[in-house]
Amino acid sequence: MNTSKIKVDQVTVEYTKSNGSKWLSFGNHRKRKDGECRVVLHDINLRIEAGEFVSILGHSGCGKSTLLKIIAGFFKPAAGEVRIDGRKVDGPRPDHVFVFQEGALFPWLTIGENVAMALRSVADSKERLQQSREYLALVALEGVENDYPHMLSGGMRQRAEIARAMAARPDILFMDEPFSGLDHLTRLHLREEMLYLHIMLPRTTILFVTHDIDEALQLSNRLIILSEPPARVKCCRTIDVPHPRNPASDDLGELRAQIYHHLGVHTAL
């Protein structure tokens, strides 16, 4: 018996074009009728253990978001299956929390109300407010619970989003380029906070998509590189350097050069 937390078996994903106009849904039954489809992921196999911090790297457009959404249950693959804790994934779940690349706080709710959305099981409203404050404090956000998302900077919004995700007490946390679009310094801060959160919640499995190689090297204990589309797993490396890590150190330098190489960059650094 295999006890892996997440098992991805021979997953293939294709987008199908229906009505000849728009790429619509993930390929399944419709494919045959319209004929046209675009294979995005091809025969992906993965094993992820509980508590792992796995980074997924790859060129933009290679299918990283798609892979994450398949595992999180937002879409069904055209072939293959995903199992979590031995059970086939059949839809999104409240303890498999997704932090979206595009940023998805509800703009019509305050920051506090947004976090409280993940705390609806707490019946008492005072208690809920108190807890949402605590989760915000966890990501160094204080005194903004009554502000609307548009009043905050991009970095603060991203923190709030992480706070909402944490408030849902994730068993698995999916993070799709959560820090892209932020300035370098903010990214470094948030990177530190991610590390801290993962140390605090060692049982939470984290799947983290990024295109920042240093970010991946510093945070994760495993690195998965996807190839050009149709994407396959090109390379899978375990990193067992203890934290805190310096991505420029000798231990990681070698690995880093290899990763750049895999991603087709030969001259950098």
Partner: peptide, 9 residues
């Protein structure tokens, strides 16, 4: 995306 969040929550 908001419906995905809703499904997730």
């Amino acid at each position: 995306i908001y419906f995905q969040v809703a499904a997730n929550l």
